[in-house]
Design a protein around this nucleic acid. Sequence first.
DNA 1: ACGATATGAATGAATG
DNA 2: CATTCATTCATATCGT
Lengths: 205, 205
Amino acid sequence: MEPQQQQHQQQPDEDNNGGAKGNFLCRQTSTRWTPTADQIRILKELYYIKGVRSPNGAEIQQISARLRKYGKIEGKNVFYWFQNHKARERQKKIFTNEVPMQQRTAWKPEDYYSYKYSNRFSSSSANTGAVTVGQRDIYGYGSVTMQEKIFWNCSVPAGGSNIGAGGGSMSNPNYGSGLAISPHSSSYTVFDQDQEADAEIETLP
Amino acid sequence: MEPQQQQHQQQPDEDNNGGAKGNFLCRQTSTRWTPTADQIRILKELYYIKGVRSPNGAEIQQISARLRKYGKIEGKNVFYWFQNHKARERQKKIFTNEVPMQQRTAWKPEDYYSYKYSNRFSSSSANTGAVTVGQRDIYGYGSVTMQEKIFWNCSVPAGGSNIGAGGGSMSNPNYGSGLAISPHSSSYTVFDQDQEADAEIETLP
DNA sequence: ACGATATGAATGAATG
DNA sequence: CATTCATTCATATCGT
């Protein structure tokens, strides 16, 4: 469980298939982007030193342009890299008990799977209250801010349970409410009875 | 450009609801919606062919009802799907090369399947129907951001084979916001009804 | 050869 | 609508 990030470096040269693709279906060998050591170095520099976390479109392009000198790279690679790096670092923090936020009750890694979901809006109805408490906002962003905004809890439980769920203030007089939807939404034919009899579910490889 | 493989698709072979998890605490099997291949196929058709981008409440229900035949699904899934798909399509462009695109026509299948359907339209300019769904995707419309506590609850029975039977008797009127969907006046169906082109629009490499 | 781990990629879900 | 989080899949790479 070491941070030993071993990254196989690939030469800056194009990984392009070198014309060997006489075959059909040649699965462009370049399965996925494999950052070079230099690229990673720069990325980390941006991340840790410059504090870049979620570069926007323009930044991504700059970065990728810069990194391109060290190997083939695309914008999305940069994007994903930062996404993943941030996410995994955060995840790692959870394991490490790092939590520099405040005091916390004893928390063992075994409880990892308990931090789970915050109760934005409970999932299935018919859950006679109780559970769904004690969430700790490890990230601090959640805070269970949203209480009763959305209500698309459908699920239609067979057991005859009120969807609205008692606590929810379900008054929805949308009529004339400011709820504006696309003035042009789509054409008028979203629905059309189609009993597509297609039997092709191409189980692609 | 990208192989763009579609990863895990839990074919409908699997039961829908996993059938009554007798146990509680049983790890809700499938915390989040995993669209089936058919569902995705239809969604993409709606998106690319019919030009659906931001379906409103009523449309969402219709769509979800239709998709329900292929697996469990809720309104919010449809909502998020379109939301995400649209956002990511744009995002992809930003990463790539931020070409300041002007306005794009509603549909633009080129990203996924290039020709496939193209010959269907524009067969003859004199053709009345077909061609251009009419709506441009200019933004500026209100926000469906559901800060209004939208309420598309239970809704539509999945069983219905014919949803709009009888001339589209959609019981769910628009939300009165006055912008509804101007019924067939501009365009109308992209081309003939549905006929579910059973071609693999499923991201082929 | 495997199995474990690291990490790129994709996408559902939410929030602002 | 833009951004971000979370989760999961896919695969490269390394350890034994």
